[in-house]
């Protein structure tokens, strides 16, 4: 089921200098429920502007966007969007700079209370959200300003999770984090999508960090969408990455090169590091020739592995195909 649908969506900043008239233009996009989307693009590609349409912070100057059961059309200004905003959580860049209460708990309760929950229910939501991001309850009484960089970022994301949104939208949540915290954060988002079935949309300019985690990839350039598709489709069109100013992940370069050398399709290649090590040893002759240890013997449990051609979360194939059909019309053709 589509949870967000954009049709010819365009956005123009009100009194901006006319040099860059449209921040978004002719955007067609459909987001399926329960998937992890990575939106990639360089500075000024319009990715932040697009995100802010998902809960009505920005409303279209052209075309329309439907989010859940609310439709925004160009020329109409909608107000009273509390209901929608409780279902679509938007996390802005550097969310930690947006914390303002004395304690973590109060900050976490702010959203639920605004959305009409009782104090008790809000308190419960607060501790649940904190647990969801994997932080201990002890932090509830602390001031947000005492926490470490990675912790404070997680708390800030929890402030949005506290309202239990169906769709979670994050604008560069990993920016300025160290690599380990970044990795943990992506795992957390994957959990939210896998265990709780939430839809996650995340903006980043680092494809390598989401390459194995995301189900769908959206590339943006100068206010338009230049590509939407699965990892498999992305692997088939590396030129789209260069065009959008995105650095190709090392894993992708390796997979393409390996496919050239071995003649095997990239779809069969693995995602995980250990699987890759074995795959390479099995397919290059390097292992058997030089170490004498049969590499494939170490892990018989082949069924549980994720391959590059598969969605990240072990979905049934049927669902995957269905989702594929609903891809937006403009896939890969605009620029």
């Amino acid at each position: 089921m589509a949870i967000v649908t954009c049709r010819q969506l365009g956005y123009r900043y009100r009194d901006e200098d006319s040099s860059r008239a449209f921040a978004l233009h002719g955007v067609n996009l459909e987001l399926e429920q329960g998937l992890f989307y990575a939106v990639l693009g360089s500075t000024g590609s319009g990715k932040s502007t697009l995100l802010q349409h998902f809960n009505g912070i920005y409303q279209p100057s052209e075309g329309e966007i439907q989010v859940l059961d609310v439709t925004f059309q160009a020329g109409q200004k909608k107000k009273g969007l509390k209901e929608l905003r409780s279902r679509v959580g938007l996390v802005f860049q550097f969310p930690e700079q947006q914390l303002f209460e004395e304690t973590v708990e109060k900050d976490l309760m702010f959203g639920p209370i605004q959305f009409g929950k009782s104090k008790e229910a809000a308190r419960e939501a607060a501790s649940k959200a904190l647990a969801e991001v994997g932080l201990s309850r002890e932090l509830l009484e602390r001031s947000p300003f005492e926490l470490s960089g990675g912790q404070i970022r997680k708390v800030a994301i929890a402030t949005v999770l506290a309202s239990e949104p169906e769709l979670i939208v994050l604008d560069e949540p990993t920016a300025t984090l160290d690599p380990v915290s970044r990795h943990e954060l992506i795992e957390l988002l994957q959990e939210l999508r896998r265990k709780e079935g939430r839809t996650v949309v995340m903006v980043t300019h680092r494809l390598d960090e989401v390459f194995c985690a995301a189900d769908r990839f959206v590339l943006m350039k100068e206010g338009t969408i230049t590509f939407t598709g699965t990892r498999q489709e992305l692997l088939e069109s590396p030129e789209r990455l260069a065009e959008a100013g995105i650095v190709e992940p090392q894993m992708m370069t390796l997979a393409l090169e390996a496919s050239r050398r071995t003649g095997l399709p990239v779809a069969e290649m693995p995602c995980e590091l250990d699987d890759w090590a074995e795959w390479l040893m099995n397919h290059s002759g390097l292992a058997s020739g030089q170490s004498g240890q049969p590499a494939h013997a170490s892990d018989p449990d082949d069924d549980n592995r994720t391959a590059l051609g598969q969605p990240a979360a072990h979905e049934p194939i049927a669902e995957e195909e269905q989702a594929g059909e609903l891809r937006p019309a403009g896939t890969g053709e605009e620029g």
Binding site: P179, V180, Q250, L280, L286, G292
Partner: peptide, 24 residues
């Protein structure tokens, strides 16, 4: 890891292969 660092994919991979007994 303690320094919050992660090796680039190619380096991590070559180290993993080495651990599995590959001479690389």
């Amino acid at each position: 890891y303690e320094c919050k660092l992660m090796p680039p994919f190619a380096l991590a991979l070559s180290m993993a292969m080495k651990k599995k007994g590959c001479r690389i």
